[in-house]
Design a protein around this nucleic acid. Structure first.
Length: 151
DNA sequence: CCAGGGATCCCCT
DNA sequence: GGGGATCCCTGGC
């Protein structure tokens, strides 16, 4: 029920219904963009919100976009992530598996590390609070949310 | 901790 | 067609 697709398609959420691997970007709280990835076959509304990232490359650019040099604050939190990456509604609907302006790729082998995926309830929603639909890298300082949801 | 920000969509006129 | 509640938050007290 907390999914934007819950009440069916609208002009705003159309990208949620695209085939998997497309961007769904929306503006919220008068100040932030949220970056999501569509996640079910075309016509089915489902998407994953990107809540944080660990900066590896382009850190100087991210610092400029975010007006801070604090590495931990560059992209920790969904609004900050979009800010650091300069993601806005222009990227809504783009194919993230193609050669467009934004894409998802495999982790650089040199950056790969042993990690465990933790699961928890979601952050910032008010419906279906018991559902375990948040996934994160256990123990990472770059994960967003309260400490108890990062262990 | 909390105000602010603006788009969107509900639902009732 | 429009008022108002709501929104997967952030920065600055």
């Amino acid at each position: 029920a907390a999914c934007h697709a819950f009440r069916g398609p609208t002009p705003r959420n159309a990208s949620v219904f695209l085939e998997p691997g497309h961007a769904y970007v929306y503006f919220i709280y008068g100040s932030c963009y949220m970056m999501n990835v569509s996640a079910e076959p075309e016509g089915i509304g489902a998407a994953v919100l990107l809540r944080a990232l660990e900066p590896f490359e382009g850190i100087d650019l991210m610092e400029r976009h975010r007006h801070t040099t604090r590495l931990l604050d560059l992209a920790r939190g969904p609004g900050r992530l979009a800010g650091a990456m300069q993601i806005d509604r222009r990227l809504d609907g783009v194919d993230l598996c193609g050669s467009g302006p934004l894409w998802l790729g495999a982790t650089d082998p040199e950056r790969r590390r042993a990690s465990r995926v933790g699961k928890s309830v979601r952050i910032g929603v008010t419906k279906e609070l018991d559902r375990v639909l948040r996934f994160y890298e256990r123990g990472s300082a770059f994960v967003s949310g309260p400490m108890r949801l990062r262990a």
